[in-house]
Computed example of a mutant assay.
Amino acid sequence: MDFLTLIAPTELGGALTVALLAASFAGSFITIAFGIGGGVMLLAIMASLMPPAALIPVHGVVQLGSNTGRASAMFRHIHWPALGWFGVGALAGVALGSALVVNIPAALVQIGVGVFVIWSVISRPPAWMKRWPVITGALTSFLTMFFGATGPFVATYTRALNLGRHGYAATQASLMVMQHSLKSLAFGFLGFAFAHWVWFCTAMILAGLAGTFTGRLVLDRMTDARFQKFLNAILILIALRLIWSGFHAL
């Protein structure tokens, strides 16, 4: 049994698995290079290639692994006071989301993710999200049960802490570790078969860690503004495809 056969779920096959590993690498590269956006990009690509029922749980585990790697690498820069009230809100948001997420049809998940991705690209989160961490934690954790990548909204709170770039990256990663940990536990209690996806998730996490380390090496050579515009255009195109697919399935 070769490596690709071991990690590729039957729902995906070898070619899609390789594409998703490349997306995990690129997503972590983008996050370390630009501070945000890689999780949304990975979500959009996974939503276009994976079974909708597995999308949010698997994406959550992959993001948990990637953010744990980033937080561990920058552990001494974490701003610990930021985690308290956010964590209280996150626990409440995940608990509420768990009670509702099981009733959402797969097609609506695709449409919701598509709309969410477009909104995260073209709009700014409301200002109150950075002043009330408990509400930010609750709202973003509730949304992550349905739509996955809420990093851009959590970042509104993190940026308001006025940390240096190392502190920002470490604290943002730590907040996302907390959120994705709670989400993964919730989906486990809801009965999602994580064991079926364990080798795929492991490979995705390792690809993401490789993207993180590579991004740190080439960060200074990137042109931020031009690449961000390109990334936003790709995200919107992928999101429109997801919305079309969802409506077609309905």
Rank of each mutant, 00 (worst) to 15 (best):
A207V: 06
I238L: 10
D224I: 08
L182T: 02
I205V: 12
L209P: 05
T202P: 04
G188K: 01
F192G: 09
R221W: 05
F230H: 15
Q172G: 09
G215N: 12
R216Q: 10
K183I: 00
T212R: 06
L185C: 01
Q172N: 07
L231N: 07
F192A: 07
L185N: 04
R216P: 00
F213R: 03
F187K: 08
M222I: 14
V218H: 05
L206T: 13
I205T: 06
K183V: 00
A233E: 03
L182S: 07
L182G: 07
F187Y: 00
A233M: 15
G191K: 08
G215R: 11
K229E: 07
G191D: 07
V218D: 11
A225T: 15
A210G: 11
R221I: 10
K229H: 02
A239F: 04
Q179M: 05
L175I: 12
A203R: 08
D224V: 12
L182Y: 02
G211Q: 01
A203D: 03
F187D: 00
Q172W: 00
L206Q: 04
L219H: 12
A173I: 03
H196I: 15
A233N: 08
A195K: 09
A195N: 12
L237C: 13
T171H: 01
S181G: 00
A239C: 07
F194I: 08
H196E: 05
G208W: 05
F192K: 03
A239Q: 08
S184K: 01
M178P: 07
M204P: 13
M204K: 07
T202K: 05
R221P: 13
G191E: 01
V198R: 12
W199L: 13
M222R: 05
H196F: 10
T171Q: 08
V198S: 10
T202A: 14
S174Y: 01
A173H: 00
Q179K: 01
L219P: 14
V177R: 01
W197R: 05
F189I: 14
H196D: 04
Q179D: 12
I234H: 09
T212C: 09
A207G: 08
L217E: 09
R221T: 11
L175T: 02
N232P: 11
Q228E: 15
A186R: 03
A203V: 13
G208E: 07
M176H: 10
Q172L: 09
S174G: 05
K183A: 00
L190S: 06
A173T: 03
L235D: 15
K229S: 12
I234T: 13
A193E: 09
T212E: 10
S184D: 07
M178N: 03
T223L: 13
R216S: 06
I234Y: 09
T212K: 10
M178S: 11
I238H: 03
L231H: 13
W197I: 13
L217D: 14
A193R: 11
S181K: 10
M176Y: 03
A210I: 11
K183F: 01
D220A: 15
F192S: 05
L219G: 02
I205A: 09
V198W: 12
W197K: 12
